[in-house]
Design a protein around this nucleic acid. Sequence first.
DNA 1: TTAATAGTGTCTTTTAGACAGTATATG
DNA 2: CATATACTGTCTAAAAGACACTATTAA
Lengths: 252, 252
Amino acid sequence: MNALSERNEQTEQQFLAEYNVDKYRKPSATVDVIIFTVITKQLQVLLIKRAGHPYKDCWALPGGFIQVPEDADLEAAARRELNEETGTEVVYLEQLGSYGSQQRDPRNWTLTVAYFALLPAESLHVQHGSDAAKAEWHAVHDNDVDVDLAFDHAKIMSDAVMRLRAKIEYTSIAAHLLPPAFSLSELQQMYEILLQAPLAKSAFRRRLREAGFVQAIDGEKRSGRNRPAQLYRLTPNHDSTLFFPRSMVRQT
Amino acid sequence: MNALSERNEQTEQQFLAEYNVDKYRKPSATVDVIIFTVITKQLQVLLIKRAGHPYKDCWALPGGFIQVPEDADLEAAARRELNEETGTEVVYLEQLGSYGSQQRDPRNWTLTVAYFALLPAESLHVQHGSDAAKAEWHAVHDNDVDVDLAFDHAKIMSDAVMRLRAKIEYTSIAAHLLPPAFSLSELQQMYEILLQAPLAKSAFRRRLREAGFVQAIDGEKRSGRNRPAQLYRLTPNHDSTLFFPRSMVRQT
DNA sequence: TTAATAGTGTCTTTTAGACAGTATATG
DNA sequence: CATATACTGTCTAAAAGACACTATTAA
């Protein structure tokens, strides 16, 4: 920037000093988390009974306003919510998408960034009755839950279930619904619950092997009255969880 | 709600009447659009030269604050931005994801919902110099452009390019970079530009056929000194643009 | 030894990659 | 008829689906 423009134009410092963040009407911004687990062979989602208006006494996804400036970023806000409800730390967390409109909340134009989380039932310590709000697991049938949901949460939840089922087909994320060490039969059962169909064992294992999804751990697991199963873990740093079959055929 | 609680608790009407939308500090909320097209056999993205602070005179993605209450919803806000910059209406528009943190904008905690759009170069009427901001096409090399971008727009853009390249593999979206009627050779070339690799013609056409992506239109197209090509359109209402090869093998 | 689940091998069918062929326009 | 691109057919190789087989434990 030259001397002339220095005289005529605002510097960035001046601009920032004089900037009023409330000059424009802002939408309210929230984060909602769809928390999935599998209990009693069913996909379950954690719901909160709303204590206050609007949609008082309705079930809703756990979530809340983004805390400015406490939340460092969107994912931190989502993890905070996740933590408040489950007391659990390390889980699979993925951004689902954002939903915003004039109508979705009677109070204001609101925007919510939705995340979904997968966690093993074994790790759960759900805070029943904390937060002055009741938290409960609800089984997902097809793409829905048996209760009515507040706001557009039914739509958000069904999007999450569809995304989860879709990703199951070509990723290893189902393993995040199990403890860190699992047998291949347990993993297959997890896939079968989510896909709602029995899978072919031999082909299933070939897939896992060729995709490099899992690796054997030394030490075995007992079970009732039969051969013990080898335990596996997810291959560490295996981001490319997707095994992509050939799609567009490159010319050789 | 029974008579007792009526006396003790606020009704929803009362609650809404007394609700102050500015009770909590809110993040600023914007929408940014990555507008893709293909010109001179290169993937190009539309960038704006910022007229004001912050990042004055830097290149940035087209975007701006969500207008409350004018914008009906997030997609409407994105379409408004798209329209302001290109003057074009019907295009492929998909939500990419949201980016928000304390640091990304020096003014405030900001949250941006990013969309990406695909449009045919033929339909373009880019408003050069409108908005007191210069708009220009920049070629994408690998996952980047040649100029520095404001905010975290480089990250957002590279995410968009990766998403585009990934979806190309199993969807028909590349067709949205062409006019409504196109030849299969043109479509193949589009895929080749995006994937940066030559494709096998016979296999390419078999894919399109088996996926039901396109359908022939009556009437042909001339070209220089050779056989004219049949023109095609995208199969209408063909949402399931993805042709998914078999993934998890169901038991028979 | 039986029962029950874990885990593997291989045959057959299907799909996809390679490549050569024919078709139809222009000059 | 030469040439350039459009378009198709088919052979071969590779992957996937089906299914039967062996392995290892506890009772």
